[in-house]
Design a protein around this nucleic acid. Structure first.
Lengths: 206, 206
DNA sequence: ATAATATATGGTCGTTTGACCATATAGTCA
DNA sequence: TGACTATATGGTCAAACGACCATATATTAT
C-alpha cells in the first residue's frame, strides 16, 4: 500500500478511532478536530481513498476503512502483536507492532466452537494444563491422531484419538504420571466424539 | 426495562444490526426498510428512547444503544463456556452452557497488554509451547518468581524471574532439554524487564 | 522551469437529515 | 366518554452534510 504523509496518517487514525467507537465522523467533525476547513479534510480524505485506505459509501458519515487496510490492521478492536522487542524503544511503538488480533474472531472461524474447562493433568505434555480452557470445534468425526473431546460413560475427556482396526485408542500426554492409553471397542462402550480441540487459552498465569 | 411492542422490537433489532455492521442508519433508511414514513420512525425511536433502549447524540445517524440495553445483551456475543457435557443432550443446549466469555475483555483488564509470539521450547513445562502467543502486561517491576518477559542484550526472553541478593535469576522450564538457569548481575548486563506473562493462547492445535 | 503532489481557505449547491406540526386510527384502561 | 398509548401519513424547516469550484502556497521530482 502506498505510504501516507504524517497529516494523512493523523486523519486516518482519527477516523479509525471514531469507527472503533461505532461513531463515524463527518468531514466537518474531522475538520474541527484538526482546526481545518472542511474542504482540507475533503482533500485529505480523497487522498486516503485514492491510496486505498478508505472507502466511502457516499452517505453522510459514510467513511469506512477499506478491506485492504482492515486486513493490514485487523484492529476493529484487538490486542497488538509485538513482533520485535528492540532496546531503547517503547515496546508498543508503532514500528514494533506486527499486527492486531481479534481473538474472538481467531476462534470464530466458523460456528459451533465453545470453550471447555480442563480438569486434570493428562495432557500437559501437549501444553494443555489443569484449569486451561480448550476451544472445541463440534464435529462428529475426527482425523486420526488429532486431539479430541470424547464422551465416554457420561464423562468428557480430552485425549489424542487414534482410530484403529476395530477399536479407538485414547492416548494421554503425561510422561511423568502413569496415565495409560485407553482402548475402547466401538459399540462396546457408549462412546461419542464431541469435537476437536483447536486451541487453548490460559488466563491465570502467575 | 419496560417491555417493547413487536414493532419497536423489530426497529430496535434493525438498528442493532446496523450498528453491529458499524453502519448507523438514518431515520429515513429505517423508514425505507419497513416501508414507513420518516415520522413513523421518529415516533418509534422516541418510544425506544423513552423506554431506555436507545440514546441519541442528536447528530445525523446518531442513534446508539443505551448502556443499560448493551449490558442486557452483551452476553450474546462471546464464546460459550460449556460446563457439563451430558449424554443424550445437544452439547450447546442452554442448560449446559455455564456462561459466555469475551476473550478480548479477559485480557483487556487494563491497558498495556500485548501478545508476543513464543519461539523456543524453554518454558514447555509451564505449558508455554513454541508458537504460542503469550499475553504480556507491561510493567517495569515484577513479583518474585513470576514469569516475565526480559530484554537481555537486545533479545526478549520469557523466563521465571527471581530477584536475589545482588543478581537476577532467569529460570527456564524444560526438564528434558538441558536449559540452565541464567544469573545476571544487575548493571552487569543491559537487562530490562518488559512485563509479566499473564496468559497464553494457542490456536494451531492439530 | 515545469509538473505533480500535498495542504489549505472560502464559497456555493443540492441533498440528507432530525425535529416538529397537524392530523388520523385503532386499542386499552379508568 | 375521555385520556392515553401506539402506529401512521404528509408536510415544513433549519441545520448538517458531501461534493465541487476557484484559488493559494510550499515541496518534490523531472
Amino acid at each position: 500500500m502506498e505510504p501516507l504523509t504524517e497529516k494523512q496518517r493523523q486523519v486516518l487514525n482519527f477516523i479509525k478511532d471514531r469507527l472503533n467507537e461505532n461513531n463515524p465522523p463527518s468531514q466537518r467533525e474531522i475538520a474541527r478536530r484538526f482546526s481545518l476547513a472542511q474542504n482540507a479534510v475533503y482533500q485529505l480524505v480523497s487522498y486516503l481513498r485514492k491510496k486505498g485506505y478508505l472507502v466511502d459509501s457516499g452517505a453522510h458519515r459514510g467513511l469506512r476503512l477499506s478491506q485492504e487496510y482492515l486486513g493490514k490492521i485487523s484492529q476493529a478492536d484487538g490486542i497488538p502483536i509485538v513482533g520485535r522487542v528492540a532496546a531503547g524503544e517503547p515496546i508498543l511503538a508503532e514500528q514494533n507492532i506486527e499486527g492486531y488480533v481479534n481473538i474472538e474472531k481467531l476462534f470464530n472461524k466458523s460456528e459451533g466452537i465453545f470453550l471447555l474447562k480442563v480438569s486434570g493433568d493428562s495432557m500437559i505434555d501437549e501444553g494443555i494444563m489443569d484449569g486451561d480452557y480448550v476451544a472445541v470445534k463440534l464435529t462428529s468425526t475426527i482425523e486420526n491422531g488429532h486431539i479430541g473431546v470424547v464422551l465416554l460413560d457420561d464423562e468428557a475427556t480430552i485425549k489424542r484419538v487414534y482410530i484403529q482396526k476395530n477399536r479407538i485408542a485414547l492416548k494421554p500426554a503425561n510422561s511423568k504420571a502413569g496415565y495409560k492409553t485407553r482402548y475402547v471397542k466401538q459399540f462396546d462402550k457408549d462412546i461419542r466424539i464431541i469435537g476437536k480441540v483447536i486451541g487453548c487459552i490460559r488466563t491465570n498465569i502467575r
